[in-house]
Design a protein around this nucleic acid. Structure first.
Lengths: 194, 194
DNA sequence: GATTATTTTCCAGTATCTTGGAAATATGAG
DNA sequence: CTCATATTTCCAAGATACTGGAAAATAATC
């Protein structure tokens, strides 16, 4: 029949999951049935997911991703619509540190490290800033402020951190760390290549 | 009371998701209520997920991952059957540091950090050692030796590092860092809760 | 120990995920 | 066109995800 019952589910669905799944499946010429057998998820379910009439459980989504050979993030997360900065407030007692007059970054792990982790000690004089271009996709930075106040900018998000605060944010977009306080900033930075 | 209703859900659950979530949450000192507000998922749901009494939808899982600042894969994927010890040789120039006579660990990130990353500065006097019990499953440590020589032991593997070398290894098994050289060891350690 | 506050778990109730099988639609052959 | 086959969508039915508030357990304070 051509007439719908009245649009069963308006489904605001900001998730492009359905479209993504359909693209991936049809791209490799799989029918719903084939896909069902490959993933262990029923044809009905797959159909509903593709039409955005249901958002699957993590378990089902995981099975689908595995059958397609993609990661969950590749399947679910929109290219860059995820949050950029996550802030966790720490307690107030700032660690006392000796302060220099110059801004500098000291590498605590070998430069150009062939690893997926690097870490640094950061010192920003008043007004100093560290601006970075986009790193490899999936790169993430973890910053802990030991003293001073800094502003983190990643993509469109912006957050201010005080002594004791920590933040993690995407580093695969242009990002910067700014000293917005009146005192020197001492912080420690961990960069993780996913 | 003490008597269970009869075990409501045996739940074969090969997914360590609950444990992972609990680890990540408690690692940053968040209560269910705080986590609920941060993620937009109800306390009840979070509690059930942690106890493996429910597997969330992709939407809910995504919210949780975003609140924690981790990717969906980091949250959901299998613990990662990666190798135990991975060694990367660095160049020789060791950073010069002043040496103490006593072994000690200095925390560069707030103790009981509300993050899934912690890092320390390690100082081991001659013959000193740091032995750790198993951490949460999926925990991994990244060690960079600034000076001295250390031996890393994780599970059955053992590797010796010199100044400038880095190593990553599983920390969800008993592991230890030993000063096997004649000089003091200075190293930096990053602990990541997967 | 008692009281208060905090955190976690339990408990309906509602919404919806998930599935097997039945309709509907599309594709092909003769 | 008719029939047969393949693919997708629709449809009950059962299971369970998800939530808000109550109860239980835990921690903190006096």
């Amino acid at each position: 029949m051509s007439a719908r019952k009245s649009r069963p589910k308006p489904d605001p669905a900001r998730t492009p999951l359905g479209r993504r799944l359909h693209a991936l499946r049809s791209a490799r010429g799989w029918s719903l049935d084939v896909m069902a057998k490959a993933s262990g998820v029923s044809r009905s379910m797959l159909s509903q997911i593709e039409r955005n009439r249901a958002n699957p459980t993590l378990m089902v989504a995981s099975r689908i991703a595995r059958a397609l050979g993609v990661t969950l993030d590749e399947l679910a997360q929109s290219p860059g619509a995820t949050s950029s900065v996550t802030v966790i407030r720490g307690d107030d007692h700032s660690h006392h540190y000796h302060s220099d007059k110059l801004s500098r970054i000291r590498t605590l792990s070998p430069l150009h490290l062939e690893k997926d982790v690097e870490f640094y000690e950061l010192r920003l004089a008043k007004g100093g800033a560290l601006r970075s271009a986009a790193h490899f996709e999936g790169t993430r930075e973890y910053l802990t402020v030991t003293s001073g106040r800094v502003e983190i900018r990643s993509a469109d998000d912006s957050e201010t951190l005080c002594a004791g605060d920590s933040a993690s944010y995407r580093a695969d977009v242009p990002h910067s760390i700014l000293n917005t306080g009146r005192t020197e900033v001492v912080a420690h930075l961990v960069v993780i290549y996913l």
